[in-house]
Design a protein around this nucleic acid. Sequence first.
DNA 1: TTAATTTGACCCAT
DNA 2: ATGGGTCAAATTAA
Length: 350
Amino acid sequence: MRSYFTMENYTGISLLDQKPLIVNQLTEAKVLLKQLEYHFDAAATSTTGKLLFPRILSSFESSLSMLKSETGHGESQMNGSMPTAANPNDSPRSICGSPRSNSNLIGENSSKKRKVLPTWTEQARACEHTGLEEPVEDGYSWRKYGQKDIFGAKHPRGYYRCTHKNAQGCQATKQIQRTDKDTSIFRVMYIGRHTCIQAAHLQPGQPRKIPEQRDVKRRKKSSETLINFETDSHIETKDLGTAQAILKSPSFSFSPASIPILCTEEESNSNIFSSLATDNYFVSSPIPSPTTSGSNSLVSPTRVNNLDGGTNFQTSEYDFCEFTSALPSALDSQALYLDWDWDSFDGFCF
DNA sequence: TTAATTTGACCCAT
DNA sequence: ATGGGTCAAATTAA
């Protein structure tokens, strides 16, 4: 699969302010998990389930370890944090720079920096299995709320939001557009992460939801709804700080087998992951991309600190929320933390 | 009846 | 003025 991953201009609160809370929360979660494991009937547990507990624990312990060793270097490297996804005012409009209110501005200080939801783009081929000129399901449920003819594009762009936007305030949206060159290829832009329950319920390694007959029928009406995420993957970021924020996040991980590195021309010189690319899947836990549920391969977790000896994390409660909600993805592939010379890095793509 | 999709109108940025 | 994103009423489907 090819997907472009774009995250821009995170600004926000210091991790130091929230570190104790995060540590407490992680510790409590770890204890609860151990209790759950104790009460779990191992005999009735699937093989996957048996593997899950130690992996979850491992993730918690790694995260706690990293948090506790966090020295504060991260603040300077990471200009800020992810936006507060739980904020119901955090609308996709904020990305598009078309605020209808000031609610999408972060903080109370005079900086008035705009909240920006994480954005990444994937390209997916229409699913051949269903015989539909549509990509396959990505595991999340979406509701279409608009369609526009885009200037210069042959095909309209469909606008989707999370089905649980109203019920759970999930701000995830996506835009799907058939590419001009190859009508079997769709370009899917994801805006914001899922904060809804369905995101947490997406189990690692679990097959993506197969569209029910009803879904298929309904979706036949729409020229674009389903995405085949088993195509090439390509992720990019425009902003160094953002790249750092992603890669230094405690929840950032690669699937054991990494990503095919496909860069645009201007990015080809800064491809930091090419040496890691081994197959078709990429996992980025901070953003539980549908891609994350597609990989089952395993690798021993490798943790590498930053060159400055510290670890940098995203800050704010949003990040912790994201982290926890992204756990299933992180668990699917055991975390591989990256070591990277940020001083020589000026962008990346997958 | 409920939920999802369609589509024209509206809003905002450029 | 124009393009892109979202809203919301109407329509469709289960």
